[in-house]
Amino acid sequence: MKSIILRLALLLAVAALPLFAAPAEAAKLRLCTGSPGKTYIRVGEKLAELAKQLTMGGLEIEVLPSKGSIDNLNRTLAGECDAFIAQGDAVAFFASAVDRTVADKVEVMGELYKELGLLLCRRGTGIDDLDEVGNGTVAAGSMGSGSLATMLVLKTIAPDLYGDIQIYPANGFEGALAVLEGKADCVFDVIAPQSDLVRTLNDNPRTGAQLYFAEIDNGDLEDFEVDGKQIYEIVTFDDELYDNLSTFGDPETLAISAVLGVSKAFLETAPEARSALAMLLLMGSKDIETVAYGERRPFEK
């Protein structure tokens, strides 16, 4: 009788064990994200939260602020970060113009969500599309930002349309201020629509009254590929979410993949992190998109 009771107790104890046991020591990953107030940091924080829930403490993510996609790649190669969030075209730009060995040192795990290349111009410029800027000036970001990388890629692959555009080295709030002060005609930022930046520019009386959404609608941009993968997609953006910045009709603009990349050196020292990160991308996709888009995706093909 005692033997039967012991066996039953053992079976109950085994049944009570979790399906996935946490490792004795968690893998600790330093994730480079983006500037305060932008979506990369909030997505990074969501990934850290999901890691605690889904890996049972097997992966700990430390979220680090940065200047953006290019800065993230530089810092990852320098060993200051183990992983990064970046635009897909910024990774391609980095590999072609900064460090051709980057593909040997980092691995892109997959897409987190789609970002939008949003163009805001000053009222009175008459600019309705990026290809109407001519030799005017666009505030497109400082060195280290993915927005600047995108603008440089556009100037390279479509020189007839964008080659004469002058670049002012700022974006975000600083870029918007440059437009208001007449230092630039438009500000260009690659950003998630559910962004503190766009909401603030819309709600601020000064920027909301002087800025408006313009388009980037060159369908040929969709032909640009890296390693056989499409980088850009032309989508229609529901700008009515931002009533002060909106114009008549929903503008077309670029959708760009925001991806999660990891140092191959880190994966060699913590091989279990690969499956943990893959699980985060798969099981956390809805939570990540909610951070980036809000309750619904505000654009469509």
Rank of each mutant, 00 (worst) to 15 (best):
Q166P: 03
A292C: 04
L50A: 01
A292W: 03
N204D: 15
K264Y: 08
V91M: 08
A22G: 14
P271T: 15
V198P: 02
D239Q: 15
V138E: 07
M56C: 00
L118N: 05
C32T: 05
D71S: 06
V102K: 12
R123N: 13
M279T: 14
S66R: 07
I4S: 11
V133C: 10
S142P: 00
K38H: 10
L267W: 06
A140M: 04
D203T: 06
A48Q: 10
E45Q: 12
S257K: 14
I234R: 06
E295K: 09
S142R: 01
D82L: 02
S285N: 10
L50R: 01
A149I: 07
V259Q: 14
V108I: 14
G126L: 06
Q166C: 07
T150G: 03
E115C: 11
T39E: 15
A139M: 07
Q87R: 05
S257L: 06
L17P: 00
F84R: 05
A292R: 02
F266G: 04
E289T: 12
C32E: 05
L120P: 11
K105N: 13
V91L: 15
I127N: 06
A176Q: 06
K38E: 15
A209P: 07
F84K: 02
R30D: 07
A21C: 12
R30Q: 03
Q87D: 13
P251F: 08
A92D: 15
C81N: 10
A48F: 04
I167T: 12
V98C: 02
Q210T: 12
N202M: 02
K67E: 14
L221A: 09
L77F: 02
F188T: 05
E240F: 06
Q53N: 04
K52A: 10
G175V: 10
E289W: 00
V108K: 05
I85T: 08
E222D: 04
D238Q: 13
K67V: 06
A270V: 01
P271K: 15
D99N: 11
G58M: 07
G88E: 13
A278N: 14
I191K: 02
A292Y: 08
I70E: 14
A140L: 00
G144Y: 14
D239R: 05
F84T: 10
E111D: 04
Q194F: 14
G58W: 09
S145K: 06
M1A: 14
S246F: 04
K52W: 05
A140I: 02
E233G: 00
L148C: 05
F94H: 12
A86T: 12
G249D: 14
L19D: 11
V108W: 02
Y113A: 08
K229G: 03
L112W: 07
R123L: 11
G117Q: 09
K2C: 08
D196R: 11
I288Q: 06
D217E: 13
